[in-house]
Write a protein that binds this DNA or RNA. Structure first.
Lengths: 191, 191
DNA sequence: CTTGTCTATGCAACGAGTTGCATAGCAGGA
DNA sequence: TCCTGCTATGCAACTCGTTGCATAGACAAG
């Protein structure tokens, strides 16, 4: 149910429409949660139906009307309750690791390009995170001192940065392993 | 669809029943993928129906019959095809990060216990990974030299170890931040 | 003797997430 | 002119993942 709570947090930080939320989920919230606009609209509709959110319809010229949501009393209370419930440490789902282990039954060297592509994607993500950190928290244009909300946003962003750095380093290890296996163990069917 | 592929990899490493697979998903496969027995039985049934797996029913005394699956030609071919298709770098889902950011609208200090609990869970997981590494790859009882499959299993395990170490360190950062906020910013309603 | 745990498989119901499509006006470029 | 892309919301169909429950014999602890 964490999508509900991620939406509540985002709406408490700033009210917005489903479309605006979906943009945020591509940016800062995306550091730790992703969602498409379909998911967001569906959950927003359910939460509105349950009276968890306040809605205000904003007419616009030349565009469809906008429904601006904000986290009213019940929504805020639901978030507070969830914050006090323990949750299970999450378990990873790592497709690339499945592939790496599956490479034992194929040609390990043929995975090198794919791993390099993933490593580049993580480098790009790290660069975006670092740029965001400079812009919002550590650069000359950032507010100082930060308030509690900003401190918490910053520590979450530092988690994303640490995650990307760790992954990039691990993929170096994976690449070295694949190169080594390519030299010493020819793929099945060619050796 | 990666559960299918994770199952294929596991069955290629060693044939087994649904129950045995669910045990493996609590251990080594669990380094990078989790699944409950219900998911596994459902997917195994579908894959069997699609002719992707070979099945052999093994009668047992005092226990229900066991259906031992192995990845036959079509299953192995499907895995090989998937290995050559590019996949998207995965996106994180991190419930605890949602909570941390949500703590701005509650009492940050009340999250400390929860974060400590998560950190301990990650310490425990790290200890299990390190014990497994010693047992299977780097200890005196481990095979030497390792074959390609074992090398790949090892590098995936090193990824799990790096992940846990990174997470433990980040949670230190989170705890320091929460303590700092607890000193300087009293929670809403009490200050 | 009862309770609980282990092996072993499975159904039902639900919520979460993905993919494709539809609507609709406006703006910019080939 | 047509095509693409942006804002803005939403339906339909599907797969994936979770939770609770059911069956059923063997075995061990109390």
């Amino acid at each position: 149910m964490a999508l509900e709570h991620a939406i509540l947090v985002s709406l408490l930080e700033k009210p917005g429409s489903g479309y605006e939320l979906s943009r945020r989920f591509e940016r800062s919230i995306g550091y730790f949660w992703t969602a498409t606009h379909q998911q967001i609209y569906r959950v927003l509709g359910r939460m509105e139906n349950d009276g968890m959110l306040a809605v205000r319809t904003v007419p616009q010229q030349g565009r469809p009307d906008k429904k601006v949501y904000s986290a009213a009393g019940p929504g805020r209370a639901a978030l507070a309750q969830w914050l006090h419930e323990p949750i299970e440490p999450e378990s990873l789902r790592h497709d690339l690791a499945v592939k790496i282990r599956g490479a034992a039954f194929d040609d390990p060297a043929s995975l090198i390009r794919e791993v390099e592509r993933h490593q580049q994607a993580h480098r790009d993500r790290l660069a975006r995170y670092l740029a965001g950190e400079l812009r919002d928290f550590t650069g000359p244009g950032a507010p100082a001192p930060l308030d509690a909300g900003q401190e918490l946003q910053h520590v979450v962003l530092r988690g994303g940065i640490a995650q990307e750095r760790m992954t990039i380093g691990w993929l170096d290890d994976v690449l070295a392993t694949l190169h080594r296996l390519g030299r010493t163990a020819p793929p099945p069917g060619t050796g």
